[in-house]
Design a protein around this nucleic acid. Sequence first.
DNA 1: ATTTGATCTAGACCTCGCTCTAGATCGTAG
DNA 2: CTACGATCTAGAGCGAGGTCTAGATCAAAT
Lengths: 140, 140
Amino acid sequence: MTTTEAAVPSLSIGEVAERTGLSVHALRFYEREGLLVGPVQRTSGGRRRYTSFDVEWLLICVKLRESGMPLADLKHFAELVRHGPGNEAERLRLLDAHRQRVDAQIQALEECRSVIAWKVGVYAEHLARGEAGGLWDPTP
Amino acid sequence: MTTTEAAVPSLSIGEVAERTGLSVHALRFYEREGLLVGPVQRTSGGRRRYTSFDVEWLLICVKLRESGMPLADLKHFAELVRHGPGNEAERLRLLDAHRQRVDAQIQALEECRSVIAWKVGVYAEHLARGEAGGLWDPTP
DNA sequence: ATTTGATCTAGACCTCGCTCTAGATCGTAG
DNA sequence: CTACGATCTAGAGCGAGGTCTAGATCAAAT
């Protein structure tokens, strides 16, 4: 013990859950599914200890998941990183493909947004006019 | 109440599937789940005939679903419309709440996008430099 | 020493949103 | 009339992504 603690903080699963927004269940699930780059360290008593690298990786996972990357792709990415250098081109392809999907998703959402906003406007106007106006039903 | 009888072509389920992008299975499923405003008309032989109103509504449903509205909310919206006028304020709330969620989603995606784009940049640069550079692993 | 709370494993279970199957019927083309 | 494809119903099945349970163990506080 003594001086080395500050360099490798080593968090418990609960602390990691707090920091990543994932539940402890999800953390264990991700590990089982092979979504982590390396095996999580354990204490003598068998409890998980996460390094800051683990947490960083998990934060990336969260971002990728948030943006709709399937767990399978995440797993693939983790495998690539796990096998070390030499496959950066593939990692790049994977990420870039995902970025493109995200772009498409943003575009689609913006289109939806404008359709919805227009509808909201229709209803708002209708209400403002004291609901006397003609609002035909299969909502215009 | 509509002006043109000829403008109500009455489509089969297959045709509606084509036009909406939903499968025939999904169309029957949506109907069972009460996601449609009215009951779909039937031929004497029991086959569904969709009006252009049905199709319009379904196209709205598709947009709302695409942007992540759960079927339960869609059902609620359909119920409001089904019960006719008088609840426009609630319809407005429902749609506007969804619009806000979509906005948040777009924002989140844009954040993800920039994180990913940055990472793509890191890998690309690394590769351009002939992968001699230092790429530490839990992907920087 | 005891209690309390966090964590452990393995595996069952859940929600969501469809998708598919089976077996019957309809309707049109030859 | 016969075939054949589209449609019908009821209900089972599926894949994704977790979530939850049971029963045990660990670690810290009283």
